[in-house]
Amino acid sequence: MNTLLRRVLFAVGLPVILVTLWWFVSAGSTSFFWPPLRAIVETFPETWLSGRLLSDVVPSLVRLFIGYGVALAIGIVAGVALGLSRTLRDYAEPTLEFLRAMPPPVLVPVIMLFAGIGDEMKVAVIALGCIWPVLLNTVEGVRAIDEVLADTARSYRLSVPTRLMTLVLRSASPQIVTGARQSLSVGIILMVISEMFAASNGLGFAIVQFQRGFEMPEMWSGVLLLGLIGVILSVIFRAFEAWVLRWYLSIQRIEQRV
């Protein structure tokens, strides 16, 4: 009981102190750029919950999920192919090294040429930027498949689809998930900046509008919302990870104990 109380105190202590501090320090703020936290919190519902949630937040997230989903699918398929074929890997490695090192935000002006400033542009930017972490991690995961396990699968004459599903993808899943996590944060960045760049709706667009219109409490509330979305997505991802990798995480826990 005592330790539980202690842990709760430790977990919420600092955040409470920080928020309180912000609240009171900013309370008497007359600076135009730094509105009181109270004002920001008060603007939050009227800014976001009345309409903008549907007109800005939802389109942003939908574009993110489509782009991210496409990237995962292509990244995993290509990653498995490259991971299984040494020859393919030899040919593709230097090119991949270059494409991976390219900072993904440069895609925004490039894709704009092809796809204008609509939804297609944003989805394409997100997809192209998110592919690399998941692809490269998948390659590493597939390469690391245990030989004995692969021999076992062959000796029991498991068919190619079964081998792909129960051996290759499952073996590589810890690395695939790591790649997917990196891709997700790249995706959020690209979602926001592709909208800041050129858009008619979306979270990034709205925040820039507020900033240009000098609506400071609204802008701040947007920054908070964006942070909140980042945190929520990361929590969802972690829950997904704990479920997909439950076997792997349990093994790790056992190994750490020994």
Binding site: S185, I188, I189, L226, G227
Partner: peptide, 12 residues
């Protein structure tokens, strides 16, 4: 909590 906050939120 702070870590997953996207850095681009700071742009404005």
């Amino acid at each position: 909590f702070l870590r997953p906050i996207p850095s681009v939120a700071l742009i404005p």
